[in-house]
Design a binder for these strands. Structure first.
Length: 803
RNA sequence: GCCGGUGUGGCGGAAUUGGCAGACGCAAGGGACUUAAAAUCCCUCGCUGGCAACAGCGUACCGGUUCGAUCCCGGUCACCGGCACCA
């Protein structure tokens, strides 16, 4: 009979659900494994064929761990706050909660259709007040510790979402989500002090088992640099503080630059004789979006401040000060000393403004280009630093600056604090009230969750305020501190809030006394293996590490890092080789594949498609290959094979080799070659008909990949229990080798023949056998053997010399 | 510009990291079964020459080390990803 996948898959999904086969339990007698995938945003489009790639991968690992005897936690949930739902709600005049409910139901049925071994009793939903109560609680703890603060500053404003964005959400000067231009806007925002954890977020990466590119990207994003802060006296009688990574080049500083937003400019207004020109430049800089500012990066512009000069502390020389937008207000001190001889940007500016260039590190030609090589240069024109290497000069000058109380060594980070407010409805309300006499006051913990009120309209106001800002009866409240009138915060949290700690909630999802119990956290955390997309490296992954470290400091979680291991998958591209998108019409819906070929085939193909870490192009044709493989497995096991469960002599070595290959490949996420090994095994079964035990081995190895068909055949063969809870097979190295092996015979590195020898043949025997082979003997008719190299179990290489 | 990665048949991709290049799958061609098609099964399948045995060439390109290089070293080119005026 044909393999009736539709009924069979339904049947086993039902059984697993009924018997709660994949329920996680805190069994102290077992080793635990916590496997995690990034929970989906339940969009209106439903699952597309990209989702199953990471899900199936971790499902395979989780299933293998269970078979290996671990107590496994493999949970799923929904990251359901977010803009698309809100926009849909606005357009169709429905409550976002309704939309969310519908979308979650759809996602749930699709995920169940694919046979994942999730513990469905632990589903979390970030929009559930019982969940976001704890998101708010964590925020209040941060507020209490001074890590959540309100600041008025220029922020990234998406013109289309009408909402502020975190730095991490701005990509190439446009909104990461919608692609609309991002402009700078002064706004009062809630901020989280992630910078307080910058050093620890960097240092602790060393001990984590993350793939390198994730570590590199996070290090890059945190952007630690070491240098010095130096105070320059000015003719205005005050000081200008700058940050530099090259204090060694101080003698080469020929001018200073401050950013257009630098506060000292206000102070100096009365001294500036060209105030109009300065103000005009400031206004122009403010008008530019981030995008324009970086786009126009090639041409340096600026205005000299007439009326104030700076004094170089090492030699007393007066040097001019400029304002220019190539200096950023938000990094370092917002001011620099310019050393055009040894910094490319300063060199460009000096050339544009016709400023002098002094060489202080010999080794290049500063008239041609800035010389920035710090490894080979020698200090010149630098007084007491002359003759030193750059490295030595740095140390010497920092000591000198410190001794003279002019400056000190300083570490800076590119990482900025996290803009945490969003002017949107569909997010967690920020549990803070503002009181005229007490300032910002936390909503008492007993009042959590602070629920989202019902509103008429979900649209952001024209002035860019949250939809909650028109809810006067909700906004007006009393101050928890003094009892006087107070107003609630109307901004909500960003989508990244709920996902920053969801993996903790899975350990104890229904707890209403704590975000999770101490015992559950102690048993399950840290997450042993977290697989997710590279696009979250500097967003979700970094944010959640930050929150976790904060909770660790509070004593709430037992580990300093949330995830012991992080891996990443490549994207699934459409058949045309480009990213799947609705507008392109190249989206593959998993339901269609499941209807035509079954869930097992989809699971198998999505893992066989190529290198897990790299992008892969979908091929409707190639899916058939996986279906054919399963059909052949079905044909083999459909009828009960008589006999016991022992391995046949003929297939024993093959089976042990395959167990090793599949076991190791799953651990290395080389699913494509694991499946290839299973296909090879089946092909070999063509030569030697498998025994009942041989088939059992194949089914056990195939179970994590294609669990439905395996369960059905398992039952038909009368094997005990569920295949999903059977023991993972163990290989025996001694049983992997055949009695005789085939070796390649090379002559001077070129393969000329094959010989068959006993597996334990000595080198001399191998060479003798090779020389006896007719073709080799012929070649050596006119040659003398001068050297032979035998590589055990692989080949023998014979080197000869003409007679 | 800086950092990271990749380059192998018609295609997706293998190769225990120095040991038989192209596993496994797709596509293609031929054959069997069939009234026919689909499905299934068998064979061929890197390029060139040859009926064949076989020989030569071949892992982006040029060179090196080695008995032996897809893998190591030096150089060149192409593509992809991340960061980007961070002083």
């Amino acid at each position: 009979m044909k393999y009736a996948f539709t009924e069979i898959e339904k049947k086993w999904q039902g059984r697993w659900e009924e018997e709660k086969s994949f329920k996680a339990s805190e069994d102290p007698t077992k080793k635990k494994f916590y496997g995690l995938i990034e929970f989906p945003y339940p969009s209106g489009e439903g699952l597309h064929v990209g989702h199953p790639r990471p899900y199936t991968a971790m499902d395979i690992i989780a299933r293998k761990r269970r078979m290996e005897g671990y107590s496994v936690l493999f949970p799923i949930g929904f990251d359901a706050f977010g803009l698309p739902t809100e926009n849909y709600a606005i357009k169709h005049k429905v409550h976002p909660a309704e939309v969310t409910k519908k979308n979650i139901a759809r996602f749930t049925s699709q995920l169940k259709m694919l046979g994942y071994s999730f513990d469905w009793d632990r589903v979390v939903d970030t929009t559930d007040p019982a969940y976001y109560k704890w998101t708010q609680w964590i925020f209040l703890k941060m507020f209490e510790k001074g890590l959540a603060y309100k600041a008025t500053m220029p922020v990234n404003w998406c013109t289309s979402c009408k909402c502020v964005l975190a730095n991490e959400e701005v990509v190439d000067g446009v909104c990461e989500r919608c692609g609309s231009p991002v402009v700078r806007k002064e706004k009062s925002q809630w901020m989280l002090k992630i910078t307080a954890y910058a050093q620890r977020l960097l240092d602790d990466l060393d001990d984590l088992d993350y793939i390198d590119r994730v570590k590199v990207q996070q290090r890059n994003w945190i952007g630690r640099s070491t240098g010095a802060e130096v105070n320059f006296d000015t003719t205005a009688g005050d000081k200008l503080k700058i940050y530099t990574t090259r204090p060694d080049t101080l003698f080469g500083a020929t001018y200073m630059v401050v950013s257009p937003e630098h506060p000292i400019l206000k102070k100096w207004e009365s001294l500036l004789t060209n105030l109009d020109a300065v103000k005009a430049y400031q206004a122009e800089a403010a008008r530019k979006s981030d995008f324009e500012r970086t786009e126009l990066a090639k041409e340096k512009t600026g205005v000299k401040l007439e009326g104030v000069m700076a004094i170089n502390p090492v030699n007393g020389v007066e040097i001019p000060i400029f304002i220019s937008d190539y200096v950023l207000a938000s990094y370092g001190t917002g001011a620099i000393m310019a050393v055009p001889g040894h910094d490319e940007r300063d060199w460009d500016f000096a050339k544009a403004m016709d400023l002098p260039i002094i060489e202080v590190v010999a080794g290049g030609n500063v008239e041609e280009a800035a010389f920035t090589d710090i490894a080979t240069g020698t200090m010149v024109n630098s007084g007491f630093l002359d003759g030193l290497s750059v490295e030595e000069a740095k140390k010497r000058i920092i000591t000198w600056l410190t001794d003279h109380k002019i400056g000190e060594s300083k570490v800076n980070f590119k990482l900025r604090d996290w803009v945490f407010s969003r002017q949107r409805y569909w997010g967690e309300p920020i549990p803070i009230v503002h009181c005229d006499c007490c300032g910002y006051v936390a909503v008492p913990e007993s009042e959590l969750p602070l629920r989202l009120p019902e509103v008429e309209n979900y649209e952001t106001t024209d002035t860019g305020e949250s939809p909650l800002s028109v809810m006067t009866e909700w906004i007006n409240t009393t101050c928890p501190k003094c009892g006087g009138p107070a107003k609630r915060e109307t901004d909500t949290m960003p989508q990244w809030a709920g996902s920053s700690w969801y993996f903790l909630r899975y350990t104890d999802p229904r707890n209403n006394q704590a975000l999770a119990s101490e015992e559950a956290l102690k048993y399950w955390t840290p997450v042993d293996w977290y697989n997710g997309g590279m696009e979250h490296t500097t967003l979700h992954l970094l944010y959640s590490r930050f929150w976790h470290k904060f909770l660790y400091d509070l004593g709430v979680v037992p580990t300093k890092e949330p995830y012991a291991k992080r891996t990443s998958h490549g994207m699934i591209l459409g058949e045309d080789g480009v990213k799947m998108s609705k507008s392109r019409g190249n989206v593959i819906n998993p339901n269609d594949i499941v209807d035509e070929f079954g869930a097992d085939t989809l699971r198998l193909y999505i893992m066989f498609i190529g290198d897990f870490e790299k992008a892969a192009t979908w091929s409707s044709n190639a899916v058939k290959g996986c279906k054919r493989f399963l059909d052949r497995v079905w044909a083999l096991g459909e009828e009960k094979i008589p006999g016991d469960d022992s391995l046949s002599k003929e297939n024993e070595a093959l089976i042990h080799r395959t167990i090793k290959k599949v076991s190791e490949d799953i651990e290395a996420m080389k699913f494509n070659t694991a499946i290839a090994a299973l296909m090879s095994m089946l092909n070999e079964f063509g030569a030697h008909k498998p025994s009942r035990g041989d088939l059992k081995a194949l089914l056990t190895l195939l179970c994590p990949f294609a669990p439905h068909i395996v369960e059905e055949l398992w039952e038909r063969q009368g094997f005990e229990g569920l295949a999903s809870t059977a023991a993972w097979p163990v290989y025996d190295e001694s049983k992997m080798v055949e009695d005789t092996i085939s070796l390649a015979v090379q002559v001077s590195g070129k393969v000329r023949a094959q010989i068959t020898v006993a597996a334990d043949a000595s080198d001399d025997e191998v060479v003798a056998a090779a020389m006896a082979e007719p073709r080799i003997a012929k070649i050596f008719e006119n040659m003398t053997l001068i050297k032979s190299i035998v590589v055990k179990k692989r080949l023998v290489n014979l080197i000869g010399k003409p007679n």
